[in-house]
Design a protein around this nucleic acid. Structure first.
Lengths: 227, 227
DNA sequence: GTTTCTAATCTTGCATACAATTTGTATATG
DNA sequence: CATATACAAATTGTATGCAAGATTAGAAAC
């Protein structure tokens, strides 16, 4: 495959891994040297990442890793909550043995990681669990959207999972979600997934803001110029 | 602003306007000549559109306007339905006088177009109405997502709105949606928006497939390899 | 008449070169 | 000492050239 696509993946991975922090400049020349290619495929990779919202490409002013404001970040988590709950609703309606088994496997892995207190491992297994739910929606387009947003939020999710006791609490929520999906209770599955995701967003916002106010009123209070 | 971004917009507009039909090749050289620039900014524009899912960029094989399969198309409409209902739910919870007025204005415009039977005008006003709901969610990130998907589906929506009587039926559904949002009934607003959007997807699928089977079983029955 | 192999042609991918714009620095001025 | 201006350096945007892979056309074989 062409270099530009490989580079896009590499740069994305580097950002997810935290090698480039929010606000860091992604200099074309440096990246070109680092990967041993010319600026052209680097530019193409950066522009694609920009179009996906992964980084900020400001014309004539270079690319930087996005720095979402606390409000924006909350909006992203809220959107993630809505999309995940949609996946859960559809999964509850359409669950097949295959998807059920995949979720079970992922859940078991989370269990082990949680009881060992291995937050790095739990982070990875948690991702698999959520992806299993996306697939269980049996709507691959929706699953793609969910997966993309999950990736964009992964940096913030990781930080937040380090919080004490959050692992075991997260695991219990997973169990409740699984139960609802298996029972075919669309409404319950949607609600539980929604809360599960949003609590992460709220906790993160708390961390960022250093206070425990009501985040929803923050999101609701902003000027809201869409597009 | 740089040429690549202008070109991206121009090409996107041309696709939305139906100048390039699904399956058409987007030849770099021809586009470069048409816009009087070199291939470089054209390539950059195409890659960005590809990253947004607007077109298909296949390595070494050029870009074409996406040709979603009927199944994929249904999945996209189903996703749109979920996102729109999320917007409606939040709008019902957070409605402000400003957003209320904006929806009212857009609804009035739809009313006029519908009664005059002007489907082209209704198409434009309908878009404004839905955008007003996105904004009323007071979550600009969610609204952006909704807007982007709306654009991707616009070609198919337009065709479908030409169906006889659909204008007046659509208008009535709008009235019901507005009523639910104003009543602050999150659940009802979500359900009505969901059905309003999904009926378009189902109708379109019927048109494409030329039969009146149950589209849901189609979507549920596919192999569902997400990502 | 159909299929398969080969060669010519066309298109895309990448590197390099240059032009245009922004950013940084030093100097002058109030 | 702060501010403004002019010049220098660094960085991005676009054009062009060439190499590599894909598509098409034609000839040969079945």
């Amino acid at each position: 495959m062409s270099q530009a696509f490989r580079l896009k993946q590499s740069i994305e991975d580097a950002v997810i891994a935290g090698e480039f922090l929010p606000g860091d400049r992604l200099d074309e020349a440096s990246l070109a040297e680092r990967f041993g290619v010319s600026r052209t495929p680097i530019r193409e990779a950066l522009l694609q990442l920009g179009a996906e919202g992964f980084i900020d490409v400001r014309p004539r002013r270079g690319a930087i890793v996005s720095v979402p404001s606390p409000t924006r970040l909350f909006e992203m988590f809220e959107t993630m909550a809505e999309i995940e709950s949609a996946c859960g609703r559809l999964a509850a309606r359409r669950l097949t043995p295959d998807n059920d088994a995949a979720m079970e496997t992922a859940h078991r892995a989370c269990e082990i990681a949680a009881h060992e207190g291995d937050s790095e491992q739990y982070y990875a297994d948690n991702r698999n669990f959520h992806e299993a739910i996306y697939r269980a929606s049996r709507n691959s387009f929706l699953a793609d959207q969910a997966f993309a947003l999950h990736k964009r939020l992964s940096a913030y999710r990781r930080i937040q999972l380090r919080a004490r006791n959050r692992l075991l609490q997260s695991l219990q929520e997973h169990a409740g979600i699984l139960e609802a999906i298996r029972a075919g209770d669309e409404q319950l599955a949607a609600t539980r997934l929604h809360d599960h995701v949003l609590v992460q967003g709220e906790r993160f916002s708390d961390m960022v803001l250093g206070l425990a106010g009501d985040r929803r009123s923050d999101a609701a209070g902003r000027s809201g110029t869409a597009k």
